[in-house]
């Protein structure tokens, strides 16, 4: 029994870490009012660039750094298109997913089939750093002026605008920051969780990260629970195969998400704490 608890917990941490980074990034972007469905694209770009650099320099941490840059660059494109050009955020995110999957595969051909000998352990100081990051991001979001500004940009952009806050700039920064975190999440996959590079290796985890952000009601601390819970459930869906048929088990993490959301929901009112201006482009002077 003890072994089950400990092991499931560790597996939850391992798969939860990359999901947590990406989910935290999405939370910041969405809190500022911008939905970014391109998490999968940003993660895979992060995974590729991290692997490429780690393979070349034998330094996985350096890989994570460049992954942050790659994710941020991809997010910048999304920010420009959705904030400056005010294009539809959902479609732009889908486009970013395609572009990321495509570009990383084309650029990554050379690195396919190469082993990575210097890897990052999957549960390590980095895991605790991730937890710390979540706490920090939670604190910033709820207890600092920056946090108020970010949240207001997503709740009442017109109101903060009249207070002299540059809504577009805030959103830009939040989206880019979110992209950097998603990039690190992807990089963690290719240098720690499964140290190798194959095109499409994120295989839908970006979408799970988006789900976790919403599941967590856009709260960084709850995202910790969401990410690790998903990781643990995902692992359990294989552990339990000895007793339960595999197909319903594989459905479990997804069905579980819906059930939990339904059970914890407030009746009526806004969907669990969604930023009021989420998905809406902000135009000065427009209400």
């Amino acid at each position: 029994m003890e072994e089950w608890v400990v092991n499931t917990f560790i597996r939850g941490l391992a798969l939860g870490t990359p999901l947590l980074w990406a989910a935290l990034g999405e939370i910041y972007a969405e809190r500022s009012g911008v939905v970014n469905l391109g998490v999968e694209g940003m993660m895979i770009l992060g995974a590729f660039s991290a692997f490429a650099l780690a393979q070349t320099t034998a330094n996985p941490l350096l890989g994570l750094l460049i992954a942050a840059g790659a994710g941020a660059a991809a997010a910048l494109l999304h920010a420009f298109v959705t904030i400056t050009l005010r294009a539809n955020q959902y479609v732009s995110g889908l486009a970013l997913t395609m572009l990321g999957l495509g570009l990383s595969a084309l650029l990554g051909r050379r690195w396919e089939g190469l082993p990575l000998l210097d890897t990052l352990p999957e549960v390590s100081a980095f895991t605790y750093l991730s937890l710390l990051l979540a706490v920090l991001l939670w604190f910033v979001l709820y207890h600092t002026r920056w946090g108020i500004v970010i949240r207001s940009a997503g709740e009442a952009p017109a109101a903060v605008d009249t207070l002299g806050v540059n809504v577009a700039l805030v959103r830009y920064l939040a989206v880019i920051f979110g992209g950097a975190l998603a990039g690190v999440g992807g990089g963690f996959l290719s240098v720690a969780y499964r140290p190798s590079w194959t095109e499409g290796m994120t295989n839908g985890l970006g979408w799970i990260a988006i789900a976790i952000a919403i599941f967590a009601s856009w709260d960084p601390l709850r995202a910790v629970a969401g990410a690790f819970l998903f990781g643990a459930l995902f692992h359990l869906s294989f552990r339990l195969q000895t007793w339960v048929a595999p197909e319903p088990l594989q459905m479990m993490p997804f069905a579980f998400t819906i059930v939990v959301l339904a059970l914890t929901a407030r009746r009526g009112g806004r969907a669990q704490g969604a930023p009021a201006a989420l998905g809406l482009p902000y135009v000065r002077g427009e209400r």
């Binding site: 939905v35 988006i210 789900a211 919403i214 819906i258 959301l261």
Partner: peptide
């Protein structure tokens, strides 16, 4: 009825 976010529920229903 329960204010469950539509993006997440429809996405999860895809997997199911």
């Amino acid at each position: 009825r329960l204010a469950v976010n539509d993006v997440i529920s429809t996405l999860m229903m895809n997997y199911i």
